[in-house]
Amino acid sequence: MRTGVLPGFGLTLGLVMFTLSLLVLAPLAGIFIKAAGLSGEAFVAKALNERALAAYRLSFGAAAIAALVDVIAGVLVAWILVRYRFFGRKVIDALVDLPFALPTAVAGIALTSLYAPNGWLGSRLLALGVKVAFTPLGIVVAMVFIGLPLVVRSVEPVLQDIDSEVEEAALTLGASRTRVFRRVILPALLPAMLTGFALAFARGLGEYGSVVFIAGNMPGISEIAPLLIVIQLEQHDVAAATAIAAVILVVSFTLLILINTLQVWRRRRIDP
């Protein structure tokens, strides 16, 4: 162990472990303890039935698609904010954080009224045969909205750090603009993009407020897993709710560990 400039490692570690246990580990353990009370058959019936499986597919699928869209859009936004100086840049910079600051219900209402079949955008899209609100597509839209700032803020500092000389070096070596981006900039951004993806994915998966407004909540079609938990709770079936929660927890935890491993592997290649 290396001692830093500031003393008190033991004390701070103790505090960290205490708060972490109290705020994170204890509630999560509670879920498992509660879910463990169920018999195997009951667990399968409550947490792995047709309706629940559809909800998992929708939640994980929509969150993954939304996170992917966020990564692409987020890199673009970060690129423009970092690389260009233009009138109104500060305003855009502030707007990026808006989905963060907004109560999610407000975002949900705003998106729903915009994308509803009689909404300003929804009506036009409907004319093209695309239905957004009250479909899985609407869920993706809401998740993209709330996840975007996470990607932008993950990528931005890394992009700022990329030395313009590295790009110039690639240019003098005869690389085309696309090659410079693909071979020089993208690999440098990849770890940050992965972080952004993981954050946006986690946020989308856990999102409730904005999604329930736009989703339509049709069981088996546009019903997300967190909503299913709420429905079980409203029916006083706490066991079912915790069983579903446990499934979500295990899957998300596995996915996050996977993404983290990928990142560590990428980073090790750059800074061994």
Binding site: E165, V166, R183
Partner: peptide, 20 residues
């Protein structure tokens, strides 16, 4: 001509190597 077309070798003060 652009830097790319000039085919000139350039060595930067801080090396500007590709870290990855």
């Amino acid at each position: 001509l652009s830097a790319r077309e000039r085919q000139v070798g350039f060595v930067f003060q801080h090396y500007a190597l590709f870290r990855h």
